[in-house]
């Protein structure tokens, strides 16, 4: 698998699940956390990480200090690094191999994460855990028997693990179920948050479910719990999509919205990010329901992640936002119509 394009690959339960991520926060015993760290110590941590994950074993290292702001933010748009890491004043780097991406000098010394398209919690945990074993065999990880893996922020203590699944839930959202999910998930140590819309989860259709509690629960328990919940929500979303399109009249209403959105994407000359995200949500539903010929949800995801503002600014010749909107319209069309 090429390391930077997970969103171009077909994953499990792809009609509802966009991606799965598992990350582990790890620190080295003998070093202070970032605000108390000297430049020399930061350089030592980077050097140690590169020794643990050497290029000779297939690891690619990207020095974030040598990237432009757009390039750094582009990694965050693709969910390969956190937004905080992209903006961080401590210029660490990213180690990548297959599904695993390791942020060096994030809030914690190392943040190991594995990202998969579709629903793949076990695979993602397996990969990130194996990268963790490598670190454990070659460095002294900060740990004590009471609090588990020691992290900069106490919210990550214990396993240091955050497992998250990105879900496309247009039907649940339309049925106003998200607020209820929030309440129920909160009671069992999970959380759901919207990925689109201006802080309004009720309007968006893309959501992320993840664990909040990391202390006093095992990694397996967390994965198992999250897995069970995601399976239930996927089932509910599919049932509701069936109801949404029950009868010719209702189906035509959905089809009409989907095809109008597709039409706009086919003929737009200028396309702003916000509009693209809105159209993405319309046509992803259509692609999942087979309403647009030869278009599957993966291709729609590829359009979204390839046309985000910093990703375009980092990869295309477009200096102004207007130029970017023009390039976005063209690129979105190319991706959607590619053979």
């Amino acid at each position: 698998m090429k390391t930077t394009n997970w969103y171009t690959i077909q994953g499990n339960e792809n009609d509802v699940v966009v991606s799965t991520r598992v990350r582990l926060a790890r620190n080295l015993q003998k070093y202070p956390f970032a605000p108390h760290m000297t430049e020399g110590q930061a350089a030592e941590i980077c050097a140690l990480a590169r020794e643990v994950y050497p290029e000779a074993d297939g690891w690619e290292y990207t020095d974030f200090g040598g990237l432009t702001t757009a390039e750094r933010r582009s990694y965050a748009e693709k969910h390969l690094v956190s937004r905080e890491f992209a903006e961080s004043q401590y210029k660490g780097g990213l180690l990548s191999k297959n599904s695993v991406h390791i942020m060096v000098l994030e809030e914690d010394h190392l943040r190991l994460q594995s990202i998969y398209p579709g629903f793949a919690l076990e695979e993602a945990y397996r990969d990130v855990s194996s990268a963790d074993e490598l670190l454990d065999s070659r460095a002294e990880i900060a740990y004590n028997e009471k609090f588990g893996y020691l992290t900069h922020c106490p919210t990550n203590l214990g396993t240091g693990m955050r497992a998250s699944v990105m879900l496309f839930l247009p039907a649940c959202s339309k049925a106003h179920l998200i607020r209820g999910f929030e309440e129920q998930l909160g009671k069992i140590g999970l959380t759901i948050r919207g990925m689109t819309g201006e802080g309004s989860r009720a309007e968006g259709r893309l959501f992320q479910i993840s664990n909040q509690i990391t202390l006093g629960v095992t990694e397996e328990e967390t994965i198992h719990k999250l897995s069970g919940i995601v399976e239930q929500i996927v089932k509910q979303e599919r049932e509701l999509r069936g109801i949404l399109c029950k009868g010719k009249r209702d189906e035509n209403l959905v089809r009409n919205q989907v095809r109008r959105a597709y039409g706009t994407l086919m003929y737009a000359t200028l396309l702003q990010t916000e509009e693209m995200v809105h159209l993405y949500e319309e046509i992803r539903l259509g692609a999942s329901l087979g309403m647009i010929e030869n278009l599957n949800p993966v291709r729609v995801d590829e359009m979204l992640f390839s046309c985000m503002p910093n990703t375009l600014a980092a990869s295309e010749e477009c200096k102004t936002p207007e130029e970017r909107d023009e390039v976005r319209a063209k690129k979105a069309r190319e991706i959607l119509t590619r053979e």
Binding site: E145, K146, F147, G158, G189, L215, V217, T218
Partner: peptide
């Protein structure tokens, strides 16, 4: 934060 204060899990 966590509702408990003792780690169980990987070591």
């Amino acid at each position: 934060i966590h509702g408990r204060s003792t780690h169980t899990g990987k070591t």
